[in-house]
Write a protein that binds this DNA or RNA. Structure first.
Length: 827
RNA sequence: GCGAGAGUGGCGGAAUUGGCAGACGCGCUGGAUUUAGGAUCCAGUGAGGAAACUCCUGGGGGUUCGACUCCCCCCUCUCGCACCA
């Protein structure tokens, strides 16, 4: 028998699949569609076994769907813009474009080695002008719709790199690139108005039953909707401070106010004086970086502002404080403080000896007891004027109503979600297509002039400053509106903009005239299955959802959610840590595939554990997967080749053990049970148990021929072996294709129909019925299927273990579950 | 603190309309084959016990003829959010 020579088999079949265009989408055939999308990678050039998991999962499912007769769209591309390329340029003097292209080529080679089948004719890269032209077009569309605007924002600023940093680029309050402490800086920046869709983005999550609950929860937290009232607190010397609260039922207990250091009220106060202490406190707080402010559990400190306000419900005079526990980013940057019913206010009030007034009574409590901590729950109002005696929820409604009548406040819904800051002071990204005209101010570049090309022959400054700032042939331009002198925008777009729409481009990847075809995306989207890492749970997925809704409202497409079903795969770890080059615990693909072949790498990756959970990579596990493929190889050839008939052996004589199948009908039942199991397991992302059921089938086949070598010519065995090969093919495609041809397949196994199970074959003659006495297992009986209660009970009583346990006792009740169990309950 | 998820042999993990706990793989033990190693094959492998048998799904309680599965309380771990008013 030939050895399993995966080195020869694997490249051979990959060439063949390419030649027959197995993964080339046939757009003209209109069968059921299946758009199976993997999150496209950033071309870092680094690819190890941990990166393969999602692609292998998707590939297995896509191959099964192909065999089930679906038109499968299975594209791949590259998230080509981003910082690492620019850093490589600065550090190693390689141009970002060159670095990126080389990495794409290297990664594509490795993808191909895995045998993951993609429709490479649809490949896109976000850094190609043919792609980013359309990213720029989106920008203009959003700008035209009023969803892109320029505004001032406080941002993380690295003084050394001279750029704004995203929050995720700030590590422990310092720039991830150069370790310089990050400061806050107000800058004019471009934003997308994602907040206009806050409510719809929240509601839409309820329409996504096939998304992981975890991801939806994270998005809900991020959107952060809360209902409350905005209340005007009049100031003693004129004017007022507005604050937002969700607990207006506690307003009668508001004994002071707190504003954030950035609150405009303080500008007025400090202009007219203010204590030295206040001045110093505000200065210090305002200079804190955003990152510093986000550190949790800081001691609450504050200073009296010198200003008094009036509680609009009680008329009480209350002091206004400045403190570090109020954030300017949320609400109005000012809060009413109710120390009796808010733990933060309670701690602060105790520290600075501020008044406390109890206005909510917990159920079963009497007033006047000394509080050890704030009571934040619901209860009955006390000492609250006309609202005294109401329950919290009713009181909130009544108080809000009264505030609206009297003009003191109004009901509002607030979100934590901020608008999406999309400008970056970086070179390697999509240029923002606007110019600044001396006369007309901000002018968008007309669509006919797109793309605004990113100049490639540029010099990189070690400071990290964008080379665009000194490129006059890029900078200097004319105004599209008045023809006068104008300067181009030098900021580029956040790479999340590039990746927010790429899945639309795959349908018309090379069309120079349109970003996407309305008709095609309406037919092919939403994406049926989107596979990727949990790290994109919020940003990428939320931005994509936003872009789709915006495009829908602009009339470019007619669906509301881009991804019907989302699957987030777990990480692959090694020695307890995420595999990464810097930790030195990577297993190289090339090495692994060189030693064991791609099919082993794939099979082990699928078998390692539940796909959504993190898993620990072990060499022993790889060997186990390889052993299984070796065994299948031998088994299939032995049971199917001519030598199967030529080498009859004496029956081993040993009686078949209980777990073994007893005849062709039993073998068929196992085969068809495996078809059911593998089919549903692949559809439900339980690849690990799909693999184990194939191992079981292989074990059963092995025992079957061992017990009766003459059975090798049986039709049931032939069916078993053929089915094993076909069911294995999505997971270990190369070896399955080779075996399929060797056992008589005349065309690719992937062109064969996926096996259907035969309900008749699933029916077994006998089944195992367990017998319990008082819930304790006493016997296992093999009974004919459909045995009656009487027959089962009689057989059970006849068993000697059961009889021994029943002797001397009276059976009070006998529970019978057909085909499963008999349980005797005795006195 | 809030929210979500998880806790099962030496290890990864199976089993959910409540009905055989530990599938499958790794590891380990013994045997066959082999000069040897490797590979392969066979048998065994939750714990205790010579055995009969008993015990076992983080801990405690409950519902039930019967609980890994349902309910209540507690512990631990992972992830997310976090002074959001």
């Amino acid at each position: 028998m030939d050895a399993y020579r995966f080195h020869e088999i694997e490249p051979k079949w990959r060439r063949h699949w390419d030649e027959i265009g197995l993964f080339r989408l046939k757009l003209d055939e209109k069968r059921g569609k299946f758009y199976c999308l993997d999150m496209f990678p950033y071309p870092s050039g680094e690819l190890h076994v941990g990166h393969g998991r999602n692609y292998i999962l998707g590939d297995s499912l896509a191959r099964m769907k192909l065999m089930q007769g679906f038109d499968v769209l299975r594209p791949m591309g590259w998230d080509g813009f981003g910082l690492p390329a620019e850093n490589a340029a600065i550090e190693r003097h390689i141009h970002p474009a060159e670095w990126t292209r080389a990495n794409i080529a290297a990664m594509k080679r490795q993808f191909e080695q895995w045998g993951t089948g993609f429709d490479w004719g649809r490949e896109v890269a976000t850094c190609d002008p043919g792609y980013y032209k359309w990213t720029q077009w989106f920008f203009l569309e959003l700008y035209g719709a009023g969803l892109a605007y320029r505004g001032e924002a406080s941002a993380n600023w690295c003084p050394s790199c001279r750029t704004v940093l995203a929050n995720e680029q700030v590590v422990a309050g310092a720039c991830e690139r150069c370790d310089t402490p990050v400061t806050q800086r107000k800058l004019e920046q471009w934003f997308f108005k994602i907040t206009a869709y806050a409510q719809e983005l929240l509601d839409g999550l309820d329409e996504l039953p096939h998304w992981p609950e975890r991801v939806k929860t994270m998005q809900r937290n991020w959107i952060g909707r809360s209902e409350g009232v905005d209340i005007e607190f009049p100031l003693e010397n004129g004017g007022s401070v507005r604050c937002f609260t969700t607990r207006h039922d506690t307003i009668f207990g508001a004994t002071y106010m707190v504003v954030a250091a950035e609150h405009p009220l303080l500008d007025d106060v400090l202009r007219n004086g203010g204590s030295a202490e206040l001045r110093e406190f505000v200065r210090k707080e305002r200079s804190q970086s955003i990152a510093r402010r986000w550190e949790p559990a800081r001691d609450k400190v504050g200073v009296f502002s010198g200003v008094y306000a009036r509680n609009p419900m009680t008329g009480r005079r209350i002091p206004v404080w400045v403190a570090n526990y109020v954030v300017v980013e949320y609400g109005t940057g000012a809060v009413m403080a109710v120390p009796a019913h808010d733990q933060r206010d309670f701690e602060f009030a105790r520290k600075y000896s501020l008044d406390l007034k109890e206005v909510i009574l917990a159920p079963g409590k009497t007033p006047g007891q000394t509080l050890a901590e704030a009571y934040e729950g619901e209860g009955t109002l006390v000492d609250s004027g006309e609202f005294t005696g109401l329950a919290s929820d009713l009181a909130r409604d009544r108080i809000a109503g009264r505030m609206e009548e009297t003009g003191v406040g109004r009901r509002v819904v607030r979100f934590k979600l901020r608008d999406w800051l999309v400008s970056r002071q970086r070179y390697w990204g999509t240029p923002i297509p606007v110019v600044y005209c001396e006369r007309c101010s901000v002018v968008p570049v007309p669509e006919s002039s797109l793309p605004v090309i990113l100049p490639e022959d540029v010099e990189f400054d070690p400071s990290g400053r964008s080379p665009l700032l000194t490129r006059h042939d890029f900078l200097d331009t004319t105004c599209p509106r008045c023809g006068g002198k104008a300067r181009r925008e030098t900021d580029t777009l956040d790479t999340f903009v590039d990746s927010a729409w790429y899945y639309l481009r795959y349908l018309t990847p090379h069309d120079p005239n349109i970003a996407f075809s309305r008709e095609m995306v309406n037919r092919w989207l939403p994406v049926d299955l989107y596979i990727g890492g949990i790290e994109h749970a919020i940003l990428h997925l939320m931005y994509s959802r936003f872009i789709i809704k915006a495009l829908r409202d602009m009339g470019h497409l007619s669906f509301s959610e881009p991804f019907e079903r989302l699957f987030t795969q777990g990480m692959i770890c090694m020695n307890g840590a995420k595999m990464s080059k810097s930790k030195g615990n990577v297993v190289s693909n090339e090495e692994l595939i060189g030693r064991y072949g791609a099919d082993t790498a794939r099979l082990y990756t699928l078998f390692i554990g539940p796909p959504e959970k993190d898993a620990e990579w072990t060499e022993k596990g790889v060997e186990g997967a390889h052993r299984f493929l070796q065994r299948v190889w031998r088994q299939v050839l032995e049971c199917s080749g001519p030598e199967a008939a030529r080498e009859p052996q004496e029956p081993s004589g040993g009686a078949a053990v209980g777990s073994r199948v007893r005849g062709p009908a039993d073998l068929r039942a196992k085969v068809h049970e495996t078809i059911v199991k593998v089919t549903s397991d692949l559809e439900n992302f339980r690849h690990n148990t799909a693999v184990s059921s194939l191992m079981e089938l292989s074990n059963v086949i092995g025992a079957y021929v061992r017990d009766d070598p003459s059975s090798r010519s049986e039709p049931a065995l032939r069916e078993a072996v053929r089915t094993l090969v076909v069911l294995l093919s999505p997971m270990a495609p190369h070896v399955s294709e080779e075996l399929w041809r060797r056992i008589g397949g005349t065309r690719s196994v992937f062109l064969e129909p996926w096996p259907a199970w035969d309900p008749a074959a699933l029916k077994r003659d006998t089944q195992v019925v367990v017998v319990q006495v008082n819930g304790k297992l006493r016997a296992r009986l093999t009974l004919p299927v459909g045995a009656s209660r009487a027959a089962a009970e009689a057989a059970a009583r006849a068993d000697k273990h059961v009889a021994a346990n029943l002797s001397g006792r009276t059976v009070r009740q006998a529970i019978h579950v057909e085909g499963k169990l008999v349980n005797f309950v005795t006195d």
